[in-house]
Amino acid sequence: MNRTPSLVVALLVAPLALVLLWAFHEALTQPSGARLADLAETSLSRTGVGNPVTAVLLSYRGYDTMLELGVLLAALLGIWSLGRVSPGFHPPELALTAMVAWVVPLLILTAGYLLWAGAERPGGAFQGGALLGAAGVILRLTGERRLGLPSERAQRRLAIAGIGAFLAVGLGTAAAGLGFLAYPESWSKWLILLIETATTLAVGMTLAAAYPGGPPGPAGNERDAP
């Protein structure tokens, strides 16, 4: 960028920044009404989980989470639709390979723990999924071309698992006359766990699959069969 646009940018930014700043401080200092967080705490007992963040994500605002998973899916499908890129590999070094053999199982184990812990403590599907994704990325970095991922068919199934679980439960509760995604209180804990598990797998798989920046399948082959 040359000098003039920078100057224009700066001139534009300065007053805007001041106004924004003022607004932010006003917002922060204003006494707000009953905050959702308090409300979320008081209703927690009816959700079947002990962690308010998990309750927000999967119970109170499960619909939002379902659509957010849709965003992930759209991004993944978008990356896949862009076609292949040439893989840029370095042959892995011995030490790295040895470390990976330790780290990856550990990551997977931790992800499982986070998923389980999310019900009561900080943790949950997105964090667990992120770890799973990281495991895939590490595998890729060490030359494992398929990132430990299954076949394309299985990848497609995994990618939709989270939304699928949400939809199945949602349509099920709607059909039972309870309303979309209204979990019956006695089943709530287990339905949430089901959705969370599916979501963890979906997020992990999506993150890992997005990393190479192209569709699944044998790398280096420019044209894949329809």
């Binding site: 009953a34 959702l36 409300l39 979320a40 209703s43 119970s59 109170y60 605002r61 499960g62 619909y63 309870l178 309303g179 979309f180 995604l181 209204a182 979990y183």
Partner: peptide
């Protein structure tokens, strides 16, 4: 949605 009243749901 979700059986939660408005500020929460």
């Amino acid at each position: 949605l979700g059986g939660w009243d408005i500020p929460l749901g």
